[in-house]
Design a protein around this nucleic acid. Structure first.
Length: 560
RNA sequence: GCGGGUGUAGCUCAGUGGUAGAGCGCCACGUUGCCAACGUGGCUGUCGUGGGUUCGAGCCCCAUCACCCGCUCCA
């Protein structure tokens, strides 16, 4: 499938526009048009219905407790210190003017030690003493260096660089330069103008000064744009859930295990927004934090991994394009016990791309918030504790004094085992990413009755328009009859009335919008009260009594 | 940020210095009997933006902006 064709259709039919397009747009931001907003709304509603209001039974067939929240986008900035976002999203980063790469300032030397050109260069030095000789370095600069580190000062201007280095070595023979200093000399072309410089691990060019490169959008709460008023637009919705963990517990009578869900916007100042809406700077997440006992967490991790994959399949994503992938050790977050990415093979990328991450986050988040907020976020398993008490105290039920003694003993010895920080399973899905996957998956070109057509094969639950109501021709009372049906269905469904142009053209228009059904009122309708149902996917037609039409739609739109 | 590409009607594009065009779409009227029918009429442009060269610039030159494609991040 050709991505450009999809983008063109989305624009032409009003699914997706570039944000603020009349001013030339804004990179990384997108608007949903009349059809797009319905599609995305249907996706979010399907998720809410299937995950929050009616999640599938648990691993042992039990009911799952799920509730929702809707938190503010802007939170107390301490939330982001606790979550680790301020630290990991705002590391001092140095940019390379040569190749444009960003390098974490604090890891520069570790990264350099692994770089290709550095490893090649280092072989030119004597292994133990670190001594060097100029002709060897000159030779390296003129051969290997040209390929491996084209922007390195030593490569660009070897005579000058080696002269500087010689001056340094001869000037202080009692204190020879260490490898770090040596490398800096080799990266410096104009010592007196710039001072010693640090090379880019990729191309060797002198790196610019370190700057905090924050992926979080910043703004100010209040009129005074002072540092103490700085706040962030949330980079994920999850932290609102963790911050409200205790509120939800205290206000709902929920017991472990249970989940809290949230759908909402999140913002990341991505370096490179790309691939249509796939990597946007403003996007919407559908997140669950499922809290459970540490001993049961693996069971729940597997449960959510399977439930989430099945959900996508159920809504029409073909299984061969949808792949769960267990993250490897090198990419997994340090606090995570296991993470599965559910990926979709988009037309724009050779490899499947992440739609959702199902992460086992252990007790990391609640522990962090406990430390930073100084609030006790532990969970006391009262039921289990009471059950234990009842069992252990049973022999002493007639001896009140003895019972109290035993109870005290038990409390000292056992009670702490029932007080713990829950573990968390986090299925975190991208609403815009799934919307894009649905669009890609739905797009099809086929022939119908010998004519080529473009059709969006959305699952009926997701289709922006559920049905079109069409009078076959605009006479003999057909428009009136059709309009009455339209008025009735409109109470319950998003339906569309169209009497413009020939019937064939109207069918094709609905095909491009992905409308699964067309109800056509014709001459026969006026006699026997039946209408034609025309199916989007194959153009097949059948007659149905006009008062059964709403039932047909209801049946097609039922979740399971 | 860096490199490469693109920018003319809603869309796809033509227009190599001399009056801005075509097809599709869209709108109106007529027609209509199940798959992008037909007829008639109509709307649509700071030729991305700013400057320069020229008697004259959509076209040549400079600058600038936006978007697209490739490089470290991620839902």
């Amino acid at each position: 499938m050709d991505m450009e064709k999809l983008v063109a259709l989305c624009r032409r039919r009003g699914f997706i526009f570039g944000s603020s397009e009349i001013y030339g747009g804004l990179n990384g931001f997108w608007d949903y048009g009349p059809l797009g907003v319905e599609l995305k709304k249907n996706i979010k509603e399907a998720w809410w219905q299937d995950m929050v209001r009616n999640p599938p039974p648990g691993p042992d067939g039990q009911e799952i407790s799920m509730v929702g929240v809707d938190c503010a986008i802007i939170m107390n900035p301490k939330v982001w210190e606790a979550s680790g976002h301020v630290a990991t999203f705002a590391d001092p980063t140095r940019k390379c003017p040569g190749c444009g790469r960003f390098v974490r300032a604090d890891q520069l030397w570790e990264i350099l030690a692994q770089s290709t050109w550095m490893n090649s260069l280092i072989q030119e030095f004597a292994p133990v003493t670190g001594a060097y000789d100029s002709p060897k370095l000159m030779k390296w600069a003129q051969n290997k260096g040209k390929k491996l580190a084209p922007n390195l000062a030593l490569v660009r201007n070897p005579h000058v660089v080696l002269a500087f280095l010689a001056t340094r070595v001869n000037g202080q023979p009692e204190a020879p330069p260490d490898l770090k200093e040596l490398t800096s000399y080799l990266a410096t072309e104009q010592l007196h103008a710039t001072g010693l410089q640090d090379p880019c691990p990729e191309c060797g060019a002198p790196l610019l000064e370190a700057k905090p490169f924050s992926l979080m959008f910043e703004t100010y709460a209040g009129l005074d744009k002072a540092a103490e008023n700085k706040v962030y637009l949330r980079p994920e919705t999850a932290q609102g859930i963790f911050a409200n963990f205790k509120n939800v517990l205290d206000s709902t009578r929920l017991r472990l295990p249970f989940g809290i869900a949230q759908i909402g916007k999140a913002f990341r100042n991505e370096v490179t927004p790309r691939n249509y809406t796939f990597r946007s700077r403003e996007f919407e997440q559908m997140e669950i934090e499922f809290f459970c006992h540490p001993d049961e967490s693996m069971k729940w991790y597997q449960y959510w991994r399977d439930v989430r994959k099945q959900w996508y399949t159920k809504l029409g994503i073909k299984s061969e394009r949808l792949v769960p992938r267990e993250q490897g050790k090198e990419e997994i977050a340090f606090y995570s016990i296991g993470t599965t990415d559910i990926e979709y093979l988009f037309p724009f990328a050779p490899k499947p791309q992440e739609l959702e991450g199902v992460a086992h986050r252990g007790a990391y988040d609640l522990t962090q918030h406990m430390e930073h907020s100084k609030k006790d976020l532990r969970y006391f398993d009262e039921e289990a504790w009471n059950a234990l008490l009842a069992q252990k105290l049973e022999p002493f039920k007639d001896d009140k004094k003895r019972r109290e003694e035993e109870k005290k003993k038990l409390e000292q010895a056992e009670k702490s085992k029932y007080l713990f920080i829950p573990h968390v399973i986090e299925p975190s899905a991208g609403a815009d990413r799934f919307t894009l996957a649905v669009l890609c998956e739905a797009y099809a070109e086929d022939t119908l009755g010998g004519e080529a057509r473009t059709v969006m094969r959305f699952h009926p639950r997701l289709a922006p328009i559920k049905a079109a109501i069409l009078p076959l021709v605009n006479k003999e009372g057909m428009p009136e009859k059709a309009h009455a049906l339209y008025r009735e269905l409109k109470n319950e469904f998003n339906v569309f009335y169209d009497d413009g142009g020939a019937i064939g053209r109207r069918y094709r228009r609905q095909d491009e919008a992905g409308t699964p059904y067309c109800f056509t009122i014709d001459g026969q309708t006026l006699q026997d009260q039946t209408v034609t149902i025309r199916e989007r996917d194959d153009g097949a037609q059948r007659r149905v009594p006009i008062d059964r039409v709403a039932d047909e739609l209801r049946k097609a739109l039922r979740p399971s």
